[in-house]
Design a binder for these strands. Structure first.
Lengths: 331, 331
DNA sequence: CAGTAACCTGCAAACGGTTGTAAACAATAC
DNA sequence: GTATTGTTTACAACCGTTTGCAGGTTACTG
């Protein structure tokens, strides 16, 4: 069917091993031979079969990228960047969606294991224990989570949260609420402790509301609690929650940012398109995707014996959903 | 390293071929033997190596899914559905983004070719000729495009466009504009001819503006032309363009839907979140993803000798960006 | 009870590459 | 002129599975 190394060998009049080396270790082949082989290969349209190669080398040159929900706008930029960078490094990537199901996640990883050199896990739903166990069989990089022995890419949401608190304090807000994310979310914990500390420093009252579902629906559901809490500003777990909150608040007659300021997290398209445009903490998702692949390939090269960590900076993007606290002249 | 068929054979005391058949053709193995093998395999944690299997069977059980831009909100639901459905059928999927670059697209397909049984091409940027050529080597399914000899999934945007035109006519609009998509876009052509026909029937004046970039920016850029065209309603190439248009119009002092009605296409999250919420033509992207995979696996089974076509229904979702024409009492 | 048909299982050759080892040859050193 | 070294190529085994073929059992059939 397809043209193999043998066809090239025959057509060139050399042994298959010579053809093989022409591609995998060119310096072991004399220049004239190499050129002849390459010419013939090009003419025949020969492409090495990666799967066959993987059989002997143990390197598939494939990666797995597992996310909980492709349709969540947080992920596509990360996927896009990871995939583009992997391609630069001559890797192909399997993308899979676990639909937030830990069971499916583990099974998926197991069936993928033989076909990839490593896996990037973004916001995994598995327990740390399960991940550590899997980590023994295959290199992993986790994003926004910490697992013993594995490389990790962390977005410094803590710093972003501080910036947001300071921004709100500067606008004259004295009491703010934090809409926490799902139970067990690493980033939600980071936000909580950073917000607590920053609020203390700025002498603000901080109320934590949640856990909340990380969706628009979760934001809508939290609207009443926010209004009743008496705060004048809110930091939501992510943009979707913030958008839902604004919608829910609107139905209760509370205007954003007139009556209440709202800060989102992620800086997704959704936040940019929302009216009012969301003030939000920018998460460097493309950089996270690239870095995760980078760390993973590093781990692959070292046979997963080292665990590196990268922390990526976040920033605050001020747009229209935050304003001076009611009854204040502003910053 | 990992446990192979040989380990299982040794531990069970049978030949490797028996173990192989236990998994790939269980009915050729006696019940007691089969059970023994399965027990041992389970205990050892044996998992067949798909890559090795692919070498002899010629079936990798992998699929490729190629899109122009993962970050465009039109794609994620399609990717999600395709991937989920493929998994049900025991296929893994490589997802790749071409960044709208035809060159990269072709190269990508070529390197992927040996590792997949077929490829789904969504809105490919390649010429028909190039695709047809590639189609000789590998089964393909194209989405929203027609290529001779290849299976296709088409979303009936024509019907959705008719619905939109009728909806606008019902609201009392007498002159409408169509913001066309990029040159050579199949769906833009469909929209154009459907809109022309529907406008004729409803006795409306139709102005085609474009081509336009399929992005928010494209919409913003078209705002002035739309205002100057004197129409009272617009059907935009997609939600992003519609959103950009609304923004651009706003800056020119034209209110939507008060002064002018806007209809988008795709029904992405972006449209749902936009203020005003977009009236839009719903594209069945999840169904398209599933159907594409279905058709592809069909083509794979038949060795790509047949080309099936599936047409998926679209619908009009009426929300807030359309209203009665100025100076009318409405429907 | 021989003949025959199922049914199971083992053998060995693929699939498309890689790679350690050895053979062939040329060049250099003495 | 031989010994040594280095370079280039060929040979063959191997990676983990599948599969056509053949041999061995068992169970029918008449």
């Amino acid at each position: 069917m397809a043209v193999t190394i043998r066809d090239v060998a025959r057509a060139t009049g050399v042994h298959v091993s010579t053809v093989s080396r022409t591609f995998s270790a060119p310096n072991l082949v004399s220049t004239p031979t190499r050129e002849r082989v390459m010419a013939v290969a090009a003419e025949l349209g020969y492409r090495p079969n990666r799967a066959a190669r993987a059989l002997t080398t143990g390197r598939t040159h494939n990666l797995g990228l597992i996310v909980s929900d492709i349709a969540n706008p947080f992920f596509p930029p990360l996927i896009k960047a990871a995939q583009a960078y992997a391609r630069e490094r001559e890797y192909h990537v399997f993308v899979a969606d676990t639909d937030e199901d830990p069971q499916a996640e583990e099974e998926l990883i197991r069936t993928l294991a033989k076909q990839v050199d490593g896996v990037v896990l973004v916001a995994p739903r598995l327990t740390n224990q399960a991940i550590e166990r899997l980590g023994l069989e295959l290199p992993f990089v986790v994003v926004n989570r910490r697992v013993k022995g594995l490389s990790a890419v962390l977005m410094d949401i803590g710093h972003g949260t501080e910036l947001a608190v300071e921004h709100l304090a500067g606008l004259g807000h004295r009491g703010i609420a934090l809409l926490a994310g799902p139970r067990g979310s690493w980033s939600s914990e980071q936000m909580k402790s950073a917000a607590t500390e920053a609020a203390r420093r700025a002498d603000l009252r901080l109320t934590v509301i949640g856990p909340n579902a990380p969706t628009e629906r979760g934001g809508i559901a939290a609207a009443a609690a926010v209004r009743d809490s008496g705060v004048t500003a809110v930091i939501a777990y992510n943009d979707l929650v913030a958008i839902g909150l604004i919608e829910g608040l609107g139905e209760l007659g509370t205007e954003v940012p007139g009556d209440l300021s709202v800060v989102g997290v992620d800086d997704t398209v959704a936040g940019r398109l929302n009216r009012p445009k969301l003030t939000t903490i920018l998460m460097p998702t493309p950089a996270a995707g690239r870095t995760a692949v980078d760390l993973l390939l590093q781990a692959v090269d070292e046979d997963g014996r080292t665990a590196a960590q990268a922390t990526l900076a976040t920033d605050l993007v001020v747009r229209e959903s935050t304003a001076a606290a009611p009854g204040t002249t502003g910053a």
